[in-house]
Computed example of a mutant assay.
Amino acid sequence: MQFSGFFSAAMMMIVLSPSLQSFPPAEAIRSSHLDSYIRLPSFQVSTSPDSQDDRFSFRKAFEFRNANECGFADHETTGVCDPTLVHVAITLDVQYLRGSIAAVHSILQHSLCPENVFFHFLVSETDMETLVRSTFPQLKFKVYYFDPEIVRNLISSSVRQALEQPLNYARNYLADLLEPCVRRVIYLDSDLVFVDNISKLWSTNLRSRTIGAPEYCHANFTKYFTNSFWSDDRFSGTFRGRKPCYFNTGVMVIDLVRWRRAGFTRRIE
């Protein structure tokens, strides 16, 4: 299943400031000490264990309520297994926290039924839940700890530095981390904001596929791998004569039932 380029562009846009457009998107949404000057303090978290000054905070969000046509569902009773919920997974880490918070806010703001959205936050640090709760008091969410050691020795030294962080690979373990009753999930990177109702993405017909994701055919793979990778013909030969297309794992609709049945996590490892 592939999303069209138009659909991808309409559903999300990279969070970029005009003054930061010379940097890669991930660089543009890095959290910094400047955040404390542009948000009202409601909660503060240190971005460095050795620094007391390197802090940032987020304004408490407004309450987002369902439209009348959403109907009523007692999520408090059924919890995460409620079949009417839209499940969204996203990573939370200090370095890209600003982008993650912006993504959550944009989803709630543009959703017709924001109270039906359940967030699954993947973390490698254990102090994030208080920050989320203080920023989005009404949010339905759960925090899942991902042990970096699971993948640390599996990450190739040939990839660019930005991809060396273990939490980048937590998406491959969603089928293990999330409750078995969660049958489908939308995974999002933290450099996106939504500009439309997320239920449109949620209702994507995957047919017989396990994953739906945007296809991108203009990649410059020389920037994805190190010089040592390209100098080794065993590796670089993989791309010889092939069109530079791939599916963007930063936006995925995943059928977890099929994923678990096929054992894709173990096969990826």
Rank of each mutant, 00 (worst) to 15 (best):
I90A: 10
P180T: 06
D196K: 09
G241E: 00
T77N: 00
Q138E: 13
N68R: 12
N220P: 00
V151Q: 03
D176T: 03
P148Y: 06
R133M: 01
I155G: 03
L174W: 07
L92Q: 03
F136K: 07
A67Y: 05
V86H: 05
F229I: 01
A61T: 04
I254D: 04
A262R: 13
F7E: 15
Q44R: 13
E69C: 05
V143D: 04
N66W: 08
S48A: 08
I198H: 09
K60W: 01
Y144T: 02
F194S: 14
R133F: 02
C217S: 07
N66G: 08
S8I: 01
G241N: 05
F225I: 02
H120R: 08
R183M: 08
F194M: 15
I29H: 06
F58K: 04
V159H: 09
T84V: 04
T265W: 04
V143Q: 08
E215I: 12
V182H: 09
H120V: 04
S51G: 00
M252R: 09
V80E: 13
T84G: 03
K223T: 15
S111Q: 06
L139F: 08
E27K: 11
I14M: 11
L112T: 15
S22L: 03
H105K: 12
A219I: 12
H218F: 08
S203N: 15
F119Q: 01
E215K: 14
R240D: 11
S157H: 11
H120K: 10
E63L: 10
L188D: 02
I186R: 10
V86R: 03
R133L: 06
N172R: 09
S57V: 01
G241S: 08
Y145D: 00
W202L: 03
I155W: 06
D176S: 12
I186T: 10
A162R: 10
R209L: 09
Y187P: 06
K200F: 14
L192T: 03
S19G: 02
